[in-house]
């Protein structure tokens, strides 16, 4: 029932996320649903990994398992060498949702302060981190605005700043630009890439857009549904300082083609 997945050889770099034979089954009234089935995956420090696949393939579920928002029912997973729960309790990662999920009753700076308040940081430390991260996402000057006074793209940038303010080494992003229009999306993709280059964080990025995955990633994990499993893992060797123009190159198109083929093969057209 499962495809033989490509096992990532242990690289010289330290592995941040190590997943072995991971499975997750939801019990529903209509019987069990196999959201994830026998996943093996290793993500090294500094990588930008995209999880791509059709809806229902478990890419978001996998991200939520890494974040300890769901619990696996089989197999092992470690984040930073410890269990996802311990990693979460140590605030080891920043999570960016499909929507900005900013609290409408807080101004932008108070929204970014939210995780810092929960961590119990001093006011001074909070303020310096707010300023730094707002600058990182180019939102300086919007501190005192309320979220609903900003555009969708700006809101999502603020939510990225909020995730970064925790100062995690790992950034988990769940289709963060899915609801934005193409032009804003391109712009934010470019900014995200620069941010990644600047901060050298490990990023796990869920998307259903092939160009987005190819443009951003150093590694693409193609997933397929029913049951959710890893179909293919593709290394992209695009230069680190790439711009949007890279999308016109044959190398880009070749990787995109391979991703598309993987998606097609993994997709059962039974519905």
């Amino acid at each position: 029932m499962t495809e033989p997945s490509l096992k990532e050889p242990d690289s010289s770099e330290k592995s941040v996320i190590q997943i072995d034979d991971l499975s997750l089954t939801f019990e529903t009234n209509d019987g069990p649903v196999h959201a994830l089935s026998h996943i093996d995956l290793s993500i090294a420090e500094g990588e930008f990994v995209s999880l791509i696949g059709p809806s229902g393939c478990g890419k978001t579920t996998l991200l939520r398992v890494i974040a300890d928002l769901e619990r696996a029912t089989g197999g092992t997973i470690s984040v930073n060498g410890v269990s996802p729960e311990e990693a979460r309790l140590h605030r080891a990662y920043g999570y960016v949702f499909q929507a900005a999920a900013l609290y409408p009753w807080r101004t932008i700076d108070r929204n970014i302060a939210l995780p810092l308040e929960i961590m119990g940081l001093s006011k001074k430390e909070q303020n310096s981190r707010i300023a730094k991260n707002l600058d990182l996402v180019n939102l300086t000057g919007f501190e005192k605005k309320f979220p609903w006074q900003l555009s969708g793209g700006m809101q999502q940038r603020a939510s990225i700043a909020r995730a970064l303010a925790v100062e995690p080494h790992l950034l988990l992003m769940d289709e963060p630009f899915g609801a934005l229009d193409e032009i804003v999306r391109d712009h934010l993709n470019e900014q995200l890439l620069k941010l990644w280059a600047k901060t050298n964080k490990t990023v796990v990025f869920v998307t259903h857009s092939i160009p987005e995955a190819v443009f951003l990633s150093s590694k693409i994990v193609v997933m397929s549904p029913r049951p959710g499993r890893v179909h293919d893992v593709i290394d992209c060797g695009l230069p680190r300082d790439r711009t949007l123009d890279v999308r016109e190159t044959p190398q880009f198109l070749e990787i995109a083609h391979r991703v598309r083929e993987g998606l097609k093969a993994g997709h059962s057209y039974d519905d």
Binding site: E27, N29, D30, G31, P32, V33, H34, R226
Partner: peptide
């Protein structure tokens, strides 16, 4: 899907009730 659901009926019914 259906075969999976039928494979373990007893385990789903009891906690269900």
């Amino acid at each position: 899907m259906t075969t999976d659901a039928m494979a373990s009926p007893s385990s789903t019914v009891r906690p269900g009730l």
